[in-house]
Amino acid sequence: MLAADLLALARRGDGEAFRLLVEPYRRELQVHCYRILGSVQDAEDLLQDTLLAAWRGIAGYEGRASVRTWLYRIATNRCLNALRADTRRPRVYSAESEFTLPEPTHRRAEPSWLEPYPDALLDELADDVPGPEARYEMRESVSLAFLAALQELPPRQRAVLVLRDVLGFRAAEVAAILDVTENAVTGALKRARAAMAVPDRESAPLPDSPRERRVVDDFARAFQAGDVDAVVAMLTDDAWLTMPPLPLEYRGLEDVRHFLATVALREGNDHVLVPTRANGQPAFGCYLRDPRTPILHAHGVLVLTLSGDRICAVTRFVDNALLAAFGLPRTLRPRDDR
C-alpha cells in the first residue's frame, strides 16, 4: 500500500495503517533520541512518547514536510524538553565498592550518564544504509568518543549538529524542526563544531576483522587471567579508563595500571568476559565469580576503543541493568560461561 493511502487511513483513525506508516522510521528515531540523550532506556521512552504524540496529531498533519521529517520534529523537541526538565533518571550513583578507589587522574564535575548502545540494534539500521562508507559513517556517529563529546554540548547545539552533520537535514529543515531561524541554526552549528573534540578513530581496525579479533581475544585472555602487565602492554601511552556514571577518569599507563592492580584485577577477583558489541566497538558483558558459589555475578558492560593494534580507552559501564539490552543475564552458571 502506498504511503499516501496509509496516511489517509491513519488520519481516519486506522491504527494498523499508522503503524505501517511509521514503522520504517522506528529504529532510526530511537538512535536519534539516543544520540541526543545518551541513554538507551531514555531513547526508547522518548520514542514511545514521539509515536504517541504523532498518533494523536496525525489528523492535523498537513503534509508540508515528509512523514520522516515530521516525526524527527516531534522526536527532537521531545528530547530537548526532556533535557530541559532534567528528570529522566535519578541522579544517584555509587562506587559499588567496599574500599576506597584510588585518586583519579581527573574528576569530572558531575557524573556521565552516557550508556552503551547494542550493535545488534544498530545492525537493523545498517541494513538500510547503502555502501560500506555510509555504514562506517553511521557507526562513527554512535561511537563512544562521538557520543561523549556530543553530551558536552548545550541541548540546542547537540540537536543541530546531529540533524545537520549526522542526518544531513538542510538548514531550512532544521530551522523548521526547531522552530528557529536559519541564521540561528547556522550559528548553533558553527559553535557546536568548534566545541566538538572527537579523537581520530581512522586507525581502528575494521569491525569483526581478524586484526580486531586478535586484539580483543588477547585482551580477554589477559583480563580473565588477572594479568595486569599483559593488559597494560596492550594500551596506548595515553590510554584512559572510565566507569560511567562515576565522574572518575584514570589516564596514562601508570594510573590505569594502579587502578587495575588495586581494584579491577586485584587478587581474589576472578572475571569472565562474554563477548558482545556496543557503539560499533568490541565489548563484553563482565561477570565476577563468587568465591563461595559457582555463580558468576554481573559486573557491568566493558567497551574497548581501539587504535591500531592497541587499546586507547577502556570504558566500564557500572550499571548491571544495561546487560538486558545486550541479551545478557544478571548471573551465569559455569555451563553458561562462553
Rank of each mutant, 00 (worst) to 15 (best):
R135Q: 15
E202P: 04
C286A: 15
V31F: 01
E23F: 07
P104R: 09
V40A: 14
D337G: 10
D86Y: 01
G15L: 11
R12I: 07
G327F: 04
Q30K: 11
H258R: 15
R27N: 13
L83V: 05
C312V: 11
L46K: 12
H271P: 12
R289V: 06
T293D: 15
D127C: 06
P102K: 04
L150G: 02
G268T: 12
R289A: 15
M234V: 09
I177A: 07
E152W: 04
F99M: 11
D5Y: 03
G268L: 09
R214C: 06
L150T: 02
T276A: 09
L101H: 07
T293Q: 14
I74V: 10
D179I: 08
R221P: 04
H32V: 11
A278V: 01
P155E: 06
R221G: 08
A225E: 10
E44A: 14
L288H: 07
E212M: 08
D49K: 08
F146W: 12
L6A: 04
L125V: 14
L9D: 14
R251A: 09
L121H: 07
L206P: 01
E98V: 11
L150Q: 02
F146Q: 02
C286P: 03
A120Q: 13
L304M: 03
L37E: 03
R158V: 06
Y287N: 05
P244V: 04
Q281R: 03
E96P: 07
Q157K: 08
C79Y: 07
L189A: 14
F284C: 06
A54V: 00
S66Y: 02
L273R: 09
T293F: 09
C79I: 10
F219V: 09
L20Y: 06
F326E: 03
E212R: 02
V22K: 01
T50A: 04
E267V: 10
V231H: 05
T276W: 04
E137Y: 08
V185P: 02
A230D: 11
R26D: 13
A220C: 09
E98Q: 06
D309F: 00
C312Y: 01
E98G: 14
R213A: 11
G15H: 09
V263R: 08
A239E: 03
R19Q: 11
C33N: 13
L122R: 00
P199N: 00
A54F: 00
L322M: 09
A148V: 01
